[in-house]
Nucleic acid binder design. Structure first.
Lengths: 336, 336
DNA sequence: TAGAAAATAGATATCGTTGTCAAAGAATGT
DNA sequence: ACATTCTTTGACAACGATATCTATTTTCTA
């Protein structure tokens, strides 16, 4: 049927073990032997049997993505990035949905990893914010790579984003457009990003000596509905802001709806800014100005880091921070 | 380390092979023996080693999802449904992105399946519309389950939706709201759904003796931009329709933007209807009336069908059609 | 240049299952 | 009662890799 190591070894006239050495990039193989074997591998179109490798070496060549109810578009981008690395390195990706409220989550994940002999995990928000969970994974000797960790001490493998700086810069941009009365809608407190984004906003406000008006600073939970409710609150206050910065696009769309229903013209009377650049941001009218994290690249890097732990990728891959891009669309306008 | 069949067999005082028989639900095991073994399995917390099973039985316990640039939210739902079945049955899901324009696609997929010993595939649009591709897969003896096939003859395993009927019914609903001048935006011709949806619309129009106005029937490609362009065309014609039905939500949002920019009030002067119920449908203002396929359930069923082929699930699972739901939101209003 | 150390290559056991085949026991037919 | 078939069970090989350990060759050191 399919080509095995044995076929390769007789074709190249070496031992089975030597072929194995070449496959696994082990040292102590003479250059001439190595190339001879590689030629045979290519000629015969050999690919190692994953099950056999896995059975013997106790590695599955599977990594898992842990997630809990993320934005669908975010999840798709994350997967996309990871898959690019998997394809190159011969790993497979398994998806594992989690419930972060489950008290027993760490145990069930540890079981999952041991059952399937999962080589490593990639963890995304909000699970990446759960210190206790990450601690237990580490304690069980599980490898994982974190995307936007709240606390970098739990793994040496992570990719972070500059949420604080990006929000600060976007706030500066709003201010540079002449806005002095700016509202803010916070995200779900469970996500560490919520605090980073709020801090970026409030520090910019302070640094430019603008007013902190707590009638316009509303707690949301990243949902469209919470954005809408925030809008209702803000627009029922005595004075209205001229711009509102929401911690994500869904809430921004919610605020926009609330404003439009009250005939507050966006962007002429009110500028609105979101965060994340989801597909919705382009499809609402007026289109949303927003902040775009390079999610695909971040996921790609996180996967490289993790797989590099096992395969020792030659390419230099270290944990690093990615910069977000500020996207100005119709919803943010200069104040006349 | 972990518990093996051998441990179970000595604990239950039977042979290794008998334990294997129990695990695989083979017949010709005495009831007493079976329950004795099951008890030992439970007591010791044994789970079979996937790699060993796979190596020996030539099955990978992996199924793959084939997709090409679908809507992100659709993809997420599809995955969600499949994963529910995988979790129960112990299969894993691998994602495989394809390029339907690639001339060599069928060969590369056949290689992929053979390399990874993939047990079966789940195919979604637009790949599910490519007769030649499906034919070649079948010819290579690959099992697959199709979601919304254009041609049911290629696999006995499929789930379909009632796109034609749903569009017909939604058109009836629009008509029942008093609309007589109704525009339509077609989807990408590569997707068989595009034709089904258009036929549902046009037949309803004809059955109710309404005017077919080809100034208002525009070819789109499912993108937001194409919807916007369609709107521009429609609104530049001499007479305007009072309702527009777009073949998906993105295009509906595009039309809506075009209308709003021209100060055509939605829904007071123009009703707009979409298809798919993506997250955007709720987040635009006014919110989109749309048609919702039970995507998660469809994917779940497709996965059951496929895995049932291998494991002979007891539950009755046959290919079937799922009914879509008509969702009325703010964008569709009775004509005064 | 002898002797030690390092590099290279191979023989064989092994991972944890399932497949094959044979054997023993139970049920059936005549 | 005996031959025949069916049911139930087990012994052992096999799947296709990697690990361990040993043997040989090359390189280095004094």
């Amino acid at each position: 049927m399919s080509v095995t190591i044995k076929d390769v070894s007789s074709h190249a006239n070496v031992s089975i073990k030597t072929v194995s050495r070449v496959i696994n990039n082990e040292k102590n193989v003479a250059e001439a032997t190595r190339s001879k074997v590689l030629a045979s591998i290519k000629k015969l179109g050999f690919t190692p049997n994953k099950s056999a490798q896995s059975l013997r070496s106790k590695r599955s060549y599977i990594i898992a993505l842990l997630y809990d109810n993320p934005n669908k578009s975010y999840l798709a981008d994350i997967q996309n990035g990871i898959l690019q690395v998997c394809k190159k390195t011969g790993y497979n990706l398994v998806l594992q949905e989690c419930d972060y409220k489950n008290k027993n989550l760490s145990n069930s994940i540890i079981n999952f990893v041991e059952d399937l002999k999962i080589d490593g995990l990639i963890v995304i928000p909000p699970l990446s914010d759960m210190d206790d969970f990450l601690y237990k994974l580490g304690h069980a000797n599980i490898h994982y790579s974190i995307i936007t960790p709240s606390n970098k001490k739990f793994s040496s493998l992570y990719v972070s984003s500059n949420d604080y700086d990006a929000t600060y810069q976007m706030t500066e941009k709003i201010i540079s457009f002449g806005h002095k009365k700016i509202g803010f809608i916070k995200g779900d407190g469970m996500h560490s990003a919520s605090n980073l984004r709020f801090n970026g906003f409030i520090n910019a406000i302070d640094d430019y000596s603008l007013e902190r008006n707590f009638d316009w600073i509303i707690q949301g939970d990243f949902s469209f509905e919470s954005g809408f409710q925030a809008g209702e609150k803000i627009f029922s206050s005595a004075e209205h802001p001229t711009a509102i910065f929401a911690s994500n696009d869904s809430m921004a769309a919610g605020v926009m709806k609330s404003a439009q229903m009250k005939k507050i013209l966006v962007p002429n009377k009110l500028s609105i800014v979101g965060f994340d650049d989801t597909p919705t941001a382009e499809q609402v009218w007026p289109s949303l100005s927003t902040v775009k994290q390079p999610v695909i690249e971040m996921a790609l890097h996180a996967a490289k880091l993790l797989i590099g732990e096992f395969d020792g990728l030659t390419e230099e891959t270290v944990s690093k921070e990615f910069k977000s891009e500020i996207i100005i669309r119709e919803s943010l306008k200069k104040l006349k």
